[in-house]
Design a protein around this nucleic acid. Structure first.
Lengths: 255, 255
DNA sequence: CAGTGGTCTAGACCACTTT
DNA sequence: AAGTGGTCTAGACCACTGG
């Protein structure tokens, strides 16, 4: 390696992070921007080595991170296939939702369009001082499958450097994809708590179930790549017909 | 030798063993056997290189797998610290359970001691031919916190090369740790479906809640490192006082 | 058959922790 | 200062996939 390349590497290390992280971030952005659409194959490891002037181990480290985060699947003799545009987070989803390639059966009803407000009095999440000081962006929607309401979702977001959120976000689009595309905001983790509760009146109404019938209640706190910015959701789910489910390769334990 | 045993031999022979996998398995066994107790530090990467006559990359690959599975935490300048004796998962657990270092508040009641039986008629999971051919090991237990029943758990396991399971397993121990220690059986993945249901009589009785009050029902299929062996559980949870919760993803990036 | 990812080696320099 | 894990290089051979 020559002197210029050495200097270049030093500068890169000072300015941001490591070589494999830079490559990882670049590839992730390109996947999100459809430079490599779902189903397509990334350049081979050797090509990436040559293009980025890196050793194969370093390239493999970047690809490994993309793989564990669910963006790609690597196949011996074939290549690195783009699998998904969003991080596999182990989120619960309605059984069959992800399988519905034809999403015509799924619809979204607006209950509360995005607006700026203050935080609810009885908000059940702990907020940082910074979040409390910011305005609260709130919206609510009902998700339906085959015309049957299955989920009532209330979302709360501190308005921290999210310009024109209210104007730009449309309720029928994917919230996470919107955040990634418009603000480079990545969801990096999540905490959730789940209960079975008797449907209160406003939930019974939106989900069209009998008062006090059993529904799932889920409180979620999403962590993001902006360390002080978290997103909050409260979900009520009607599981009479559709169960909530998830699959995880790297699972969890306890009890 | 019967059909089941023959299939097993084949599968076992197919399981390849690379250098890093062998080292990974050896270290994992030693962690489970308390050669390296929780909190202790593994031999340094260089020591492992010398001892096993491997390059550092290979040793790091083995340690990396132990880390992603939650057995160790690596700290720069310090070493690889043993963190846990069971795989760190993303399973739902009762909120606060993991925080209870003092587990005296948690108790287990036997409902059905382990026994061999046939598979239930209305079993809601799809079984492979191999699993159907095997006997079903079944047990049921109730988990309580501070004397309050919170979970009623029914478990079903195909009796495939799990010698003396019924005699060896005690209901008040961790099922996963038992499987890892006695049979080197690792849980590698899981599917689950979740409902909110009205408590049927037998559930209401075991959880000491009113008939038809809302309870969580969870069906789980656990995948293991034996590709054809899955474990099945049906859980009923009383979430009146304790919610079910989990955390996933990378939570602490930096302050 | 050429190309791919999987495994592995034998070095090197760095930032960090502990002594 | 010595030791640790984090990153990175420049090779190598293998098993597998595809044309």
């Amino acid at each position: 390696m020559n002197f210029v390349a050495l200097l270049y590497e030093q500068v890169n290390r000072m300015e941001s992070s490591t070589q494999y992280q830079l490559l990882y971030l670049r590839l992730k952005k390109e996947i999100l921007a459809d430079v490599y659409p779902i189903g397509s194959i990334l350049p081979s490891e050797n090509d990436l080595c040559a293009a980025a002037n890196l050793s194969r181990s370093t390239v493999r480290q970047a690809l490994g991170q993309l793989e564990t985060e669910g963006y790609i699947i690597k196949q011996k003799g074939k290549g690195s296939i783009v699998k998904s545009k969003s991080r596999s987070l182990n989120l619960l989803s309605f059984h069959g939702f992800s399988a519905m390639v034809d999403k015509t059966k799924m619809s979204t009803l607006s209950v509360q369009e995005p607006s700026y407000s203050s935080w609810p009095e009885d908000f059940h999440f702990e907020l940082s001082e910074l979040e409390k000081a910011a305005a609260c962006i709130h919206f609510a929607r009902v998700r339906a499958v085959e015309g049957r309401p299955v989920m009532y979702e209330l979302t709360f977001v501190p308005n921290l450097n999210l310009p024109n959120f209210v104007r730009r976000f449309k309720l029928n689009q994917s919230f996470f994809e919107f955040l990634a595309k418009e603000y480079q905001l990545e969801i990096t983790g999540m905490e959730q708590q789940i209960w079975a509760v008797a449907a209160p009146p406003f939930v019974a109404q939106h989900l069209r179930v009998e008062l006090n019938s059993p529904v799932l209640k889920i409180n979620r706190k999403y962590h993001s790549n902006r360390s002080h910015l978290n997103l909050y959701s409260i979900l009520y789910c009607n599981t009479e017909k559709y169960a909530l489910g998830n699959t995880s390769g790297v699972i969890n334990q306890s009890i």
